[in-house]
Nucleic acid binder design. Structure first.
Lengths: 218, 218
DNA sequence: TAGATTGTTAATCGATTAACAATC
DNA sequence: TAGATTGTTAATCGATTAACAATC
């Protein structure tokens, strides 16, 4: 028996990546409107501010539900909170950082993440001379402790800021321990099971894209 | 008189962003093949390694030229170098970093960039207590010196690792001084002239995407 | 109510994949 | 030469934009 899929995508897994990648930007603009005391906004007004089409905004939002009202537009506070809920940032997430180098420390010290509910619960490093050092009020632990730490503390997210050499091995252990997502800064593609999410931040690739665009500029 | 556009896109500005974003990944895989002593590769073999279609690889590459040979495939070293040339990383680029916080320092210390020809020429910060401190062999300079420094040293790229409050103002000054591209880590959209390239790295947005995907995972 | 603006369908546009003749 | 594999055209698929009836 075929059940017609309901509109609001309760299964949630058929929304295109392009749409999902735009949600945080909507969220950022709504936050700003909220800070400026703006109560409501139409897709037309928002489209001008964000430099996208009003059509796209309405299409994107309607993937998740009808958050607006004809003749009125969208209530900023309400839409803001709905997007937070969609993004899963209406509750906290526990993170550990593996790799206590410059980048790992930068992320650990990044206050804004905590504001969004991403809480750094621990840091790990394989280098004995780094282990034990303090970073943002917590001591850097040795790699051997990672697996149990993930299990014991229900860690959801692993921020991976180590060279590519050991990245897949660390990922494998973290997956075994039940990690849900990996924020990958290592310069390689991780191999993980389907139920584990990987979000790549390949800084050198981003810089190469910039280089390309500069080169092609008249 | 209408001149039919030649195939290799000498004007260079009509290639889709999707293609361009894939180039650094091709480059990374070719580098790896090169390191492993692989001499030639077919689009079919590469497609298996990279988990994309062979068709896409051939289409992407043919935006820039016919780098392969029927019955043979692609010469790894040659294609590697050609992609480097396309990306504009066959020569060095001068960078300054504005914002000598954790992230700025992390980028400054990131040896891999130098390997790709991105050379950090200076760092700047508005905080007097940071100015003068050493970072990777060079002293952090006060913001007031940035404009002249860009001009005098022919700086191409500005890595912007400051809070959003002053980001647009710094960008404006850098543009006046002749900057070609901005690698923007600030949580906002910069407003720059058309001939200046902006590449955004919005870390919190990346983390929100990860959060979304975790939430939707069964 | 009249005007504004949504939600949603239809039309367009662009990107990906498939297919195959060309050719090494 | 025969087999392999490209470069490229055509077919398909998906995403964006336009249009407008529904409705607040």
């Amino acid at each position: 028996m075929i059940v017609k899929e309901i509109n609001h995508h309760m299964d949630g897994n058929d929304i295109s990546l392009a749409v999902i990648k735009r949600l945080p930007r909507y969220y950022r603009y709504l936050e700003e409107l909220l800070d400026n005391g703006v109560e409501r906004i139409s897709s037309g007004d928002l489209s001008v501010r964000m430099n996208v089409t009003a059509s796209q905004i309405r299409q994107d939002l309607n993937n998740f539900g009808g958050f607006g009202q004809q003749g009125y537009g969208y209530n900023v506070a309400y839409l803001h909170d709905e997007i937070a809920r969609i993004l899963g940032i209406d509750h906290t997430h526990s993170i550990i950082i593996v790799g206590a180098g410059n980048l790992g420390k930068a992320i650990a010290n990044y206050a804004n993440f905590e504001k969004r509910g991403f809480v750094v619960r621990g840091m790990f490093d394989s280098n004995p001379s780094v282990v034990g050092s303090e970073c943002r009020g917590s001591k850097v632990m040795p790699m051997e402790m990672m697996k149990d730490f993930i299990r014991d503390n229900g860690i959801e997210i692993l921020a991976l800021t180590i060279p590519k050499t050991n990245a897949n091995e660390v990922a494998r252990i973290a997956v075994e321990a039940g990690i849900r997502g990996i924020w990958n800064f290592a310069h390689m593609d991780l191999t993980v099971p389907d139920n584990v999410v990987v979000e790549n931040v390949h800084l050198s690739e981003s810089l190469m894209t910039l280089s390309y665009n500069i080169s092609r500029q008249k």
